[in-house]
Amino acid sequence: MSRREEKRKAYAGILMPQKHESNAAPPKKTDKLCGTCTNYSESSWSSDGRGSCKYLKLGSDITQRPPVYVFEGKEGYLTRTLADASTCEHYQKMKMIDKDGYECSDPTFRRSIRQFQE
């Protein structure tokens, strides 16, 4: 596989938003989301829920059973704020904060999810 093909494959899932299930039941609630993990970094370009993991590297896949962990490489594993991280062994829950939502100087990468109540 060429370098370009490898990258394209690795990025494919993150490029397009996923379709919403119009009349489906709400997704099963989990208290372990990538967005609530200290290792998660939100993309600063968009607030549509994209981000990357500071711990797992590109090639990882926590949706697999068992999850695939890659620790080598420079680029972080691309994931989403609301991705289910319940099977990820490296999940570390961050602290929530009480902050004015109109302020955009959140000290940790503007993550609005930090304002959720516990």
Binding site: S41, S44, S52, K54, K74, E75, G76, F109
Partner: peptide
């Protein structure tokens, strides 16, 4: 050249 905030070269 590595960006430590977004974890990417």
């Amino acid at each position: 050249g590595y960006d430590p905030v977004v974890n990417m070269q």
